[in-house]
Design a protein around this nucleic acid. Sequence first.
DNA 1: TTGACGAAAATAACAGTGTAAAGTATATTG
DNA 2: CAATATACTTTACACTGTTATTTTCGTCAA
Lengths: 219, 219
Amino acid sequence: MSTASVTRQARIKQNSAERRERSRQETRQAILEAAIEMFEREGYEGFSLRQVAESIGYTPTTIYLYFKDKDDLLFAVCSQGFAEFTQALQTAYDTHPDPLERLRALAWAYFEFGLSHPLHYQMMFMQRSEWVLRATDLKGDVEGANSFMIQLNAVVEAMKAGKIRLGDPVERTNLLWASVHGIVSLALSMRGVVPKWDEASARRLLEEYLEVLVHGLSP
Amino acid sequence: MSTASVTRQARIKQNSAERRERSRQETRQAILEAAIEMFEREGYEGFSLRQVAESIGYTPTTIYLYFKDKDDLLFAVCSQGFAEFTQALQTAYDTHPDPLERLRALAWAYFEFGLSHPLHYQMMFMQRSEWVLRATDLKGDVEGANSFMIQLNAVVEAMKAGKIRLGDPVERTNLLWASVHGIVSLALSMRGVVPKWDEASARRLLEEYLEVLVHGLSP
DNA sequence: TTGACGAAAATAACAGTGTAAAGTATATTG
DNA sequence: CAATATACTTTACACTGTTATTTTCGTCAA
């Protein structure tokens, strides 16, 4: 009887703790979602903790019970972007068995992500690129979950298959990565400002670039 | 006599106006220099009008007599960067007669500017790239003064000389520009964060990239 | 020389911002 | 029921850019 009541009480206690933890995660998620919505509406400059708090009926200081500071919340906003980005690359990798086509598909997936998530992209790879590390660390030790690793694998495979010239795989990957990033970031920066840099011409540019690259990298 | 005294008075008046105008430009310049110094020390985030004013013994509001607002002052800070950038490209252009070497030299000049003026570069080409237009417009109608035009000319020359494959010159220029920008911007973003992205490896990357490019673009 | 004028600079104020410390309900537990 | 831990708010501080108003001061004409 004593043991039974003790375990029941323990169970109740545990359930209570679980429920409270769940509630805690719920409000954390509510804050996060409000933050995402606000970030996508206002961008980086206009992103304000006080407005986020107000939009879900909380006092500004409450946010500090769930996130260390503004940067931490903003990182949480971006980390969803990182996850989506990695997944986009992963599906591109998985759906293209041919090594060369795979590289092309990866570049296009990269491009599409940037063009369709401009605010996230600018944050993730232009303003706060140091978060790349934090984001991949956060994902655990699964190597495949790292977006760089996906690209690296694709490069290694292409080398193995004799489709591109041999060389330091990491540097090759950086080369590809940097060029696509250059096109995407310039397209995002210049669109709406320089007429020549609309989305269509950015597409043509990437197309041309991939052509030049396979030419220049062929063994 | 009447005409003489009138003209003398007119001269005095004009000199006075000139001197006042000069004094005005002097304090404007003082503000601008303080702003540059502050920007280079604190970066974009830490750049504060009030601190700029304080550092030269002015009240914050005085700045508004010389610059429209914070953005305007920040643009003035960057416009020096644009001038220096254009000049760097121009000398690279002028000192290399061979078309292919010229393209290489332009890429390296671009690279060097970015690496040695990281804050300016990030402002000019990553955060506020819409200023590129404003900066070139400001320079007057001399086509050679535009950094893009310099690169464009170099590409056209290389095509004429049969050193690279024919194609839309503007798109070709964007291709070169975007790739170098990609390397530079990633190098700036990642250095100090990702060990692999130190300055030396960025240099190797550009070297390799130029090799691949002349391979891929050879007629 | 004085008095008016006009430009330059300063004051005061407003509406924001991120963040820390202290206080207050509310719910959980013994 | 009383003690306690948790969630949240209040208050406050030190900033930010920006505007409207007021003061200071050099220049210029009478």
